[in-house]
Simulated scan of single mutants.
Amino acid sequence: MFFASDNAGPAHPQVIQALADVNSGYAVGYGAEPGMDRVRNRLRDVFEAPKAEVFLVATGTTANSLALATLTQPWETIFCSPTAHIHEDECNAPEFYTGGAKLTIVGTDDKMAAASLRASIEGEETRGVHGPQRGPVSITQVTERGQIYTLDELSELTATAHEYGLKSHLDGARFANALVALDCTPAEMTWKLGIDAVSFGGTKNGCLGVEAVLFFDPGHAWEFELRRKRGGHLFSKHRYLSAQMGAYLTDDLWLDSARRANAACTRLATGLRSLPGVSFDLEPQANIIFLQMPRAAHQRLRAGGAEYYVLAGNPDSGAPDEMLPARLVCDWSISDAQIDQFIALARG
């Protein structure tokens, strides 16, 4: 019963098999292997973007940081939400790889609103040479609070950014989870709305460790290649990245895995919703739940072997009916039996 993170789940057997298959003989390195050509062409088809440039890296931090570095000058600022990966979870890597560009936090929620973005943009470039200049907007989809931007909301954000001549980046660590929840196409969630670059996640959704970066303007390709190499993130045995991504894309495994994770979250939420004393902080939209449960329920779950994050308070001591917040995340591999066991323990 592991609900702590979708990073913690196993890689999909088809991904592992693809690694085994590629692990024989010899292949040219650094992304020049035939498998990368297939991945590039497949992602161009998936995104309906025949001129898109596609690159693979091993981590989401690398994908976000190098993509943003390619879109940002060191004297600019990147606009993002308070809970964005690039702000909370990447140890200042975007600032490092951009050579010092800062982050400007937009609003107070996990989702940026166009009005708040406009106000933040207007607040910069007010001090001439003495202050940061306006840079790209980075949008996290799914957000770290488990919320999904609608297509209209994304369109409003990118339109606001482009009004000021700014680029838009989509942090898609959980890209597939958002896509299946919205029931749209990758093109409809990205370049058709004005997104310029995408970090296309694989690791949280069944891969061992691979993320894709897509630029819909191929003019950014050479700079990204140089930054990836200079930053130490160009794999020599690159075939092990392209093998993972190739398997991930084959027969829409990436969509099937996301549907499984989202469906597991729905089953879990439905069961928990029926329990006395349980309340949801936000309506679950993808594969993440934020809720409040009595301390007694947390104690039963922890004693029963459930793994998840209690976000505040000590679950081991205190009043049994005191409400404590928690985060639950479902990955593609969570079984119905594990979910039902979790719910039974919470019920007591």
Results as ranks from 00 to 15, higher is better:
N314G: 12
D217V: 00
G232I: 01
V129W: 14
E188G: 02
E88Q: 12
T185N: 14
E125S: 13
A319Q: 09
S138A: 15
H220R: 11
L234M: 04
S279H: 06
L214T: 07
D45Q: 15
L255P: 02
C184Q: 09
V278M: 10
Q338Y: 09
L154T: 04
S81T: 06
D252V: 11
E156G: 08
K51Q: 15
I148V: 13
A49G: 08
A115M: 03
A326E: 10
T104Y: 03
D109I: 00
H130Q: 13
K229A: 13
L117M: 00
C184S: 15
W75V: 00
H233Q: 15
D316Y: 15
E322M: 11
T77N: 02
V213L: 10
S279P: 04
S5I: 09
A159D: 14
I334S: 10
R260Y: 04
E211S: 12
P50G: 11
G348M: 12
H233D: 09
Y164M: 02
E322C: 06
T266F: 00
V198Q: 07
G9D: 00
G31I: 01
P74I: 00
A161F: 08
D171G: 05
R302V: 03
C184R: 11
G246T: 02
G165S: 10
L268M: 12
P13D: 02
E211G: 02
G172L: 07
A264W: 04
P94T: 14
D252N: 15
Q17A: 12
H169R: 02
L43E: 09
H162E: 05
S317Q: 15
L311K: 13
T190R: 04
A101V: 06
A115H: 10
V57A: 00
A52V: 03
G318S: 05
E90Q: 13
E90F: 08
S138P: 03
A18T: 06
F79V: 03
A303Y: 05
R42G: 05
A344H: 15
S333G: 11
D331Q: 14
A58V: 01
A258F: 10
A176W: 08
C184E: 12
T62C: 09
T150G: 14
S317T: 13
A159L: 04
A197T: 05
F215L: 06
A69R: 02
H298Q: 08
W75A: 07
N7M: 06
D183A: 15
V210I: 13
G25F: 07
I343D: 14
L249K: 02
D251N: 14
R327A: 15
A32V: 01
L275T: 13
F79G: 05
P94L: 03
L154G: 02
R227A: 07
S24L: 08
L154V: 09
E95C: 08
A344V: 10
G209A: 15
R38D: 14
N41D: 14
L66N: 01
E53P: 01
W191C: 02
Q244P: 03
Y164H: 14
